[in-house]
Amino acid sequence: MRKRSKFQEQEIAADLLPVMNVMFLMIPLLLAAMEYASMSSINVSPPRFSAARAEEKQDDSPKDKPLNFKVIVLEDGFRLSADGQQDGAEAGKASDSGAPTIPLARPGTPLDDYARYDYAALEQRAKSYKDLFPNETTVTISAEANVPMQALIHTMDALAGRECKLARALKGEAIPANCYFWQPIVEGGAG
């Protein structure tokens, strides 16, 4: 004969009321927190590859040629180059490739201080390039390893134009005139 077990199975009633109360309080709290959370996005495009023809017309005007605008964020400023030549260097002459084109606005400040860069001068230089090449919208950006990420973000903002608002342009309207190079391509490592 089998012995009966002393323990009998009992049905346990789960009390979900405390969990429901917590969830009931969390939903309005999370919705209220969204009021203070700021959301933003940065349009970044991958590099473009194309099979370009070897024989190109030599009499193209500057507005027809690609700009190939590149900005390198250095520890001591910005180095700009366009069409393979560093900005500020005369044609046919080699320039000091290590010197920044736009030096720091506040030299002597700590490396982690992104406000030491001269973003206003960078934006003015981007505006002058945009005047010469009105159809260009891309810029290639790279940075040295010690440059803070916030400096890279502010660099993208300055190159796009600080007053640039693309929300309406993404809905089909024309791109505003105060938007310069709003499609950055971020490369790894300064080179």
Rank of each mutant, 00 (worst) to 15 (best):
D59F: 09
S61H: 07
P62I: 12
P62N: 04
K63S: 15
K63I: 12
L67T: 03
L67Y: 01
L67F: 06
N68Y: 02
N68K: 04
F69T: 02
F69Q: 02
V71Y: 00
V71P: 02
V73F: 07
L74Q: 14
E75R: 03
G77C: 03
G77Q: 03
A82H: 11
A82G: 13
Q86T: 12
D87E: 14
G88N: 05
G88F: 08
E90P: 07
A91D: 10
G92V: 10
G92N: 10
K93Q: 15
K93R: 15
S95H: 04
S95Q: 12
A99Y: 02
A99P: 02
P100Q: 12
P100T: 09
P100I: 10
T101S: 15
A105D: 09
R106W: 07
P107Q: 11
P110R: 15
D112L: 07
D113F: 12
Y114M: 00
A115F: 08
A115M: 14
A115V: 03
A115I: 05
A115G: 01
R116P: 08
R116W: 10
R116Y: 11
Y117P: 02
Y119N: 12
Y119R: 09
Q124C: 04
A126S: 14
A126G: 03
K127M: 13
K127W: 05
D131G: 07
D131I: 10
L132D: 09
L132F: 07
F133E: 00
F133A: 12
F133N: 05
P134C: 09
N135D: 14
N135L: 12
T137M: 01
V139E: 00
S142F: 01
A143N: 07
E144G: 04
E144I: 00
N146W: 00
N146T: 13
V147D: 01
A151H: 06
A151W: 02
A151L: 09
L152S: 01
I153W: 05
T155R: 00
M156A: 13
A158E: 01
A158F: 03
E163Q: 14
C164A: 12
K165D: 15
A167M: 09
R168V: 01
R168D: 11
G172Q: 07
G172D: 05
E173Q: 12
A174I: 06
I175T: 15
P176F: 07
C179I: 11
C179M: 07
